[in-house]
């Protein structure tokens, strides 16, 4: 480890003061966003992603229609100011295309596309800030945006990144940690425990994989609880506004500014 920063110090704390299995603060904002059918702003630590969903609607191009199910179109845009180093990425950037393709393949088995033949569901991912866990934040935000758009899903998709420092597994890595330790992103459907996505871009010892993978699956279930609370709060605020005289929840419904800690076994 030729790193100047200590990834995990002797006291068991990470560089930002978290424990091994501690997730960063999560904030979810589900207020309506312009003309979008559904939208979600998801913040996890310093990573911030805004996802807007349009549809199901008529496909813009006839060639994109599929006769027996809906087509899912994912477009990712990473703001030039989202990283420490200002960097403009073009839309055709391979990295961005890969991110979009990963999100698309994660959601294809989860969205009930067969209910909407010849339609298209557009998912626009806007990355506002990034500090590690970009793919997992984008997936969580997309799940929330799809639910607010009223699009039928088999289940939530909850994603989290996890890595391993020598023999210690860690959850929810920051950019600093991602640069130093092998890490993977896991997206889990919490009800059945099915996995819709696992990506590993670094080299990880096969003996360590199982532990890291298992801990990420568990963390996904914790995230699920938080996402569900945000959705329920939003849904009941709207239901109440429709049913009674109360004004609906004010435009911003920030929920769940809480820390979580997973027991260090």
């Amino acid at each position: 480890m030729g790193s100047r920063v200590e990834i995990l110090n002797d006291g068991g704390y990470r560089s930002d003061g978290r424990r091994q299995f501690e997730l960063r603060d999560i904030a979810i904002d589900l207020s309506r966003h312009g003309q979008a059918d559904g939208s979600a702003m998801y913040t996890q630590g310093l990573t911030e992603v805004l996802v807007t969903v349009f549809g199901p609607r008529e496909a813009k191009l006839r060639s994109q229609t599929i006769h027996n199910r809906a087509n899912i179109n994912v477009e990712v845009n990473i703001a030039a100011f989202s990283t420490g180093e200002r960097r403009k990425r073009s839309r055709g950037d391979k990295r961005i295309l890969e991110l979009g393709a990963a999100i698309k393949s994660t959601f294809e088995p989860v969205i009930q596309t067969h209910l909407y033949p010849r339609s298209q569901i557009d998912i626009f991912v806007q990355v506002l800030q990034q500090d590690g866990g970009l793919l997992s934040a984008a997936i969580n935000a997309t799940t929330l945006a799809l639910i607010t758009a009223g699009i039928p899903l088999f289940d939530y998709v909850c994603a989290v990144s996890s890595g391993v420092h020598s023999t210690h597994a860690m959850l929810d890595l920051t950019t600093l940690e991602e640069n130093d330790v092998p890490h993977l992103t896991v997206a889990v459907m919490p009800r059945t425990g099915k996995i819709t996505l696992v990506t590993l871009e670094t080299r990880l010892h096969s003996d360590r994989f199982e532990e890291v993978f298992r801990i990420a699956c568990e963390a996904g279930k914790v995230l699920h609880e938080e996402m569900r609370n945000a959705i329920k709060a939003r849904t009941s605020a709207l239901a109440r506004a429709m049913g009674e005289g109360h004004p609906a929840g004010a435009p911003s419904n920030r929920e769940g500014d809480e820390d979580f800690e997973m027991g260090d076994d």
Partner: peptide, 30 residues
């Protein structure tokens, strides 16, 4: 939707029942 003999919600919304029919009505949808 139905899986393993259970009726499971696929959208977020209010649960409505007419006799033996269970539906979930999403609050924001097309």
């Amino acid at each position: 939707y139905v899986e393993d003999d259970e009726v499971i919600a696929s959208v977020a919304g209010t649960v409505e029942r007419v006799n033996k029919l269970i539906t979930v009505r999403p609050l924001q949808t097309r």
